[in-house]
């Protein structure tokens, strides 16, 4: 492996990991804040991709980066309202319900866009490569890393420095006490759900020019990123980024060195990590 190929693989792994982070950060936020596993996250991600095919054709790719996540979050608002009667009941009901929602969303995507797999052409300024210290990298990979990095930083700021983030961390340990402080917990759940879904929608936008997706992938894609969630820790929002990067790199280098085992590598890594610490290898022992 040449040095340039190594770095190209590295950047490809980081960019894949960062886009996966966008999907899993929302899942982690929803699990942590609402004690709800949203199996429908993959469908919202794919919905983001398909909305981008249509909206980017009308207003351009860059404005879609803002508009599509807002639209996806808006749809998430209604899904959260619909699932609310099951809050506080057995988590299995919520899992089945969100899986049902994913099925419906995927069929709605088929209704509007059909079965054909599409691919968005990249805007001119994101096409081609850029040379950094003599090594050529695809501009779009760098763009994905920058956008996802900014989102990850904003997410970190929200969780650690804002009142909403403090309340999210507080609600994990004591939901009734948060309500006793005068906080409308149901309203807060709506906001958290919309943020979680909106971030997945952003991941879908970034994915649109890279991978052609079938609408039905909304059902399977969640399974592909599940290892990230388990490696980072189900309720550890800070563990998502390092776990996503780790899995992205394992995928990228695995495809080069162990192509015959490529598909099994993330799951194998998840099993090993869960043996080391079932709460996630990036979960600090003393707390969150």
């Amino acid at each position: 492996m040449t040095v340039s190929f190594f770095f190209q693989t590295l950047i490809s792994g980081i960019s894949n990991g960062m886009v996966s982070y966008l999907m899993i950060a929302g899942v982690s936020l929803i699990i942590s804040g609402m004690s709800m596993v949203n199996f429908g996250q993959g469908a919202f991600y794919v919905l983001g991709t398909y909305l981008t095919y249509t909206i980017a054709a009308k207003i351009g790719f860059v404005p879609s980066l803002i508009l599509v996540p807002i639209l996806v979050a808006g749809i998430g608002y209604f899904v959260e309202k619909a699932t609310r009667p099951l809050f506080g009941k057995d988590m299995l009901y919520i899992m089945l319900l969100t899986y049902g929602v994913a099925y419906m969303l995927c069929d709605i995507i088929v209704m509007f866009w059909g079965y054909s797999i599409r691919l968005l052409s990249l805007p001119a300024f994101l096409n081609g490569g850029v040379k950094i210290v003599g090594i050529k990298f695809p501009v779009y990979y760098i763009f994905e890393i920058v956008i996802s990095g900014i989102t990850a930083f904003a997410f970190w700021l929200m969780i650690n420095k804002t009142k909403l983030g403090m309340l999210t961390r507080a609600i994990i340990s004591d939901r009734p006490m948060v309500a006793n402080l005068g906080v409308n917990v149901n309203q807060m759940f709506s906001v958290l759900f919309m943020i979680g879904i909106g971030i997945a929608g952003l991941g879908g936008v970034l994915n649109a020019p890279v991978t052609g997706m079938s609408p039905k992938e909304g059902l399977s894609i969640f399974g592909n990123v599940m290892p990230i969630l388990c490696i980072g820790g189900l309720r550890n929002m800070d563990g998502c980024l390092p776990a996503a990067l780790l899995v992205g790199l394992v995928n990228a280098f695995g495809a080069v060195y162990l192509p015959q085992y490529y598909n099994v590598l993330p799951a194998a890594l998840m099993v090993i990590c869960m043996f080391i610490n079932p709460k996630g290898i990036f979960t600090r022992r003393e707390g969150r």
Binding site: K163, M166, A170, S173, D174, V178, A179, L181, G287, R288
Partner: peptide, 30 residues
Amino acid sequence: SHSIARLGIAYVPQGRHIFPTLSTEENLKV
């Protein structure tokens, strides 16, 4: 509960119910 609290009643429950993963200052700010 949240509407009652917003009328101006602060509840200090038995067992304190401090948020364990928040700092002292965050427990106040929240």
